[in-house]
Design a binder for these strands. Structure first.
Lengths: 176, 176
DNA sequence: AATAATATGTTATGTTATAACATATTTAAT
DNA sequence: ATTAAATATGTTATAACATAACATATTATT
């Protein structure tokens, strides 16, 4: 089972995450004859600045700064679409936000663990999970094509913080 | 494992679905001292007219007809919020739409099987699935609070239709 | 260098959702 | 029964998310 839950939810050398993600993107684009244009690379870079999913309009604002000119929504959405199609970025529907995929080449569960306190989202693959969903689908005579699995809760950091000092920084990344 | 995949995705006496849903709602509201006002009951009724998730603005339009007067979005969203809080209705984030819950009292997986062809959504509970997600969360030291699990594909009806006559009525309920 | 294909710019608008405040209705308390 | 409190709805405006349609620019192919 692959997972980036450790790095996503805990302190780490994040420059590595960014560089690795950009390297993977360049590789994948070369391999697929897709153009990683400056705009697209910037958007990917911005998305990877943290492990918190970013909304399109947050990206727009930051992309405008990076580019030194104003950027209209379609430009952002196009870049996102490109990255999503290549599997480099996922959309998390319940958040209307986008997150970098840590393993764009591997088989996917599209399973996200989203912290309701700090907003970070970790992704995990899980073969047992896929088997189970497949068998549930079979039972229902449902032809499974794709999936979106979102778990909401507290990451280790935030859980520790809330249980030790009773204080909770609530950024309101709730789902319910 | 509970599931309404048979009834949701296949021909059935749908009046039963509607009546049962309204009965459950009345029970639950009585039990919780919550008021199932005409507006709320109408919205629930409208949501249960089919097994296809309805958007808030579709509900608005239909509610206006039912009520014989124009209805503003907040009225619809308030009714939805009420129903969602009671567990009578689920929001399906990837569709920005709402669907009736067939078993509002039972433990939930919040697992939806959404047909990309006809748009119908069936819900299933699955204890094995819950255990698996719980253990995945444990491994990631993630405190699981709630979840949203969306499967996209083809229901039996639509799969049969597409494979037998090659023709496909595509209403474009796609996710990818 | 001309053509085709791809990518971005630009304007406008569609779609989903909520904030803020006013009014009405229902419930509980006196 | 009357008042007060709580709950629900009406109303206006706007925020937040997303795409359509068409123009221009850039890159790849011939």
């Amino acid at each position: 089972m692959l997972s980036n839950s450790r790095s996503a939810h805990q302190p780490h050398n994040h420059l590595r995450c960014i560089n690795a993600a950009l390297d993977r993107a360049r590789d994948l684009c070369a391999q697929k004859n897709a153009r990683l244009t400056p705009t697209r690379e910037r958007v990917l870079n911005l998305i990877w600045q943290s492990h918190q999913p970013l909304g399109a309009y947050q990206l727009q604002e930051q992309l405008a700064k990076l580019s030194g000119k104003s950027i209209a929504p379609p430009t952002v959405y196009r870049a996102i679409e490109f990255l999503v199609n290549l599997g480099l970025v996922h959309r998390i529907p319940s958040l209307n936000a986008f997150i970098g995929c840590p393993f764009p080449n591997s088989a996917h569960s599209n399973l996200f663990m989203i912290c309701q306190n700090c907003g970070s989202a970790a992704e995990a693959t899980h073969s047992g999970l896929n088997d189970l969903l497949q068998s549930a689908s079979n039972r229902a005579q449902f032809i499974l094509k794709s999936q979106n699995l979102e778990l909401f809760g507290l990451c280790l950091q935030c859980n520790t913080a809330t249980t030790t000092n009773g204080e909770q920084v609530n950024h309101d990344y709730t789902n319910d």
